[in-house]
Amino acid sequence: MTTSRGRWSDLDRPPLGVRALRDALIRPAGLWTALDVVEVTGSTNADLADAARAGRVGAGAVLIAEEQTSGRGRLGRTWSAPARSGLFFSVLLRPERHVPAARLTWLPLLAGVAAATALSRAAGVDAVLKWPNDLLVRVAGEERKFGGILAERVADADGGAVVLGIGLNVSLRAEELPVPGAGSLLLADAVSTDRDPLLRAVLRSLAEWYTRWTEAGGDAEAAGLHAAYEKCSATLGRRVRAELPGGGETRGEAVAVDDEGRLVIAADDGTRQPVAAADIIHLRAA
């Protein structure tokens, strides 16, 4: 006799409550305007970008996948996990209506602050940020990546948008980790791995920070975003090595994040070099 693995096949990983999520998050004059959950897809970022180009979704759309088979990170890196073991979602935003193009580099950092602060409260973990877009928790005494962020610009009929994707390992067990050094909220001894309240917390935090930032015209200092990022950062104050395309590298102490969201590295000779996320391959401990 065979049994099918349905949505309730793993009682530790129940499906998301779509109706309750919509009731909690979609409000008149709120940022989120539509919310959909699909059972499985390749990439929520790719699906939402296609929908935007086709004119099927507007600003504030949220797309969530119970399982993502071809999730993408920076530089085409992949992200996958068992069904209902994490939060894999993308949102459609139009920041260029309020924010100068030079300040858009702060959007992935903003998403990191929103996720880290929300999960620190809702899951009871010390979530921190590795520049530019990694979320870390402490597992067995070491910092491990449990989440990532990817922002992609989309050209559509309404003048362009940004699809912002977030992937978070929630209930992954040690034997399910994609790489040995990865982590999850479960392995970090989170007080809760219930995905519904965790997702609500992250999306509410993202809406709050995004609204504050756009109302400030993208000024991270005025919005309080710059200070919040520094408080969440696990990179500042540490010696790092930025690996550059072509085999070059920049070494030194990470001393600041500048007005454009670039990491400022102070070399041993006293010079300071800002590096942008788009200009590096890896950032590692030196």
Score class of each variant (00 low, 15 high):
110 L>R: 05
53 R>N: 08
2 T>H: 14
6 G>N: 10
121 R>Y: 14
226 H>R: 15
244 L>Q: 03
88 F>G: 00
21 L>W: 04
95 P>K: 09
235 T>K: 09
237 G>K: 07
175 E>Q: 14
7 R>W: 12
170 V>I: 07
54 A>R: 14
129 L>Y: 11
4 S>Q: 14
132 P>Q: 11
156 D>N: 07
277 A>W: 08
49 A>D: 00
167 G>M: 03
236 L>N: 09
252 G>E: 02
221 E>T: 14
193 T>A: 07
66 E>L: 01
81 A>R: 06
194 D>Q: 11
39 E>F: 01
121 R>F: 12
194 D>Y: 08
49 A>S: 05
269 D>N: 10
177 L>K: 06
18 V>N: 01
256 A>Y: 09
250 T>P: 06
266 A>S: 13
34 A>P: 05
150 L>D: 01
179 V>D: 15
52 A>G: 03
198 L>Q: 01
139 V>S: 03
163 V>G: 00
97 R>H: 12
201 A>H: 06
243 E>W: 12
118 A>G: 04
277 A>R: 11
15 P>L: 02
116 A>I: 04
73 G>R: 02
96 E>N: 10
202 V>R: 01
78 T>N: 12
269 D>R: 08
79 W>V: 01
257 V>K: 01
244 L>G: 01
7 R>E: 14
213 W>P: 04
86 G>V: 00
185 L>S: 03
260 E>M: 14
4 S>D: 13
278 A>K: 15
94 R>M: 05
193 T>L: 06
99 V>A: 08
262 R>F: 09
268 D>F: 08
6 G>V: 03
22 R>S: 06
259 D>L: 11
221 E>R: 15
251 R>V: 11
241 R>W: 10
205 S>V: 03
169 N>Y: 06
143 E>C: 12
16 L>A: 00
250 T>V: 15
243 E>G: 10
137 V>P: 02
129 L>V: 09
22 R>F: 04
278 A>G: 12
51 A>P: 02
247 G>W: 05
49 A>F: 02
197 P>Q: 02
18 V>Q: 10
218 G>D: 04
130 K>L: 04
241 R>A: 12
223 A>F: 06
234 A>V: 04
85 S>Q: 02
140 A>T: 14
129 L>M: 12
262 R>H: 11
79 W>G: 00
154 V>A: 01
56 R>N: 10
18 V>P: 04
180 P>E: 12
282 H>S: 15
214 T>G: 02
78 T>E: 14
108 P>K: 05
218 G>K: 05
265 I>C: 05
178 P>G: 07
174 A>W: 13
166 I>V: 11
208 E>L: 14
3 T>W: 13
38 V>F: 00
73 G>E: 02
69 T>N: 04
113 V>C: 09
196 D>Y: 06
8 W>Y: 14
57 V>W: 00
215 E>H: 15
135 L>G: 01
45 N>D: 03
270 G>P: 08
266 A>K: 15
273 Q>R: 15
103 R>G: 10
120 S>M: 07
218 G>H: 04
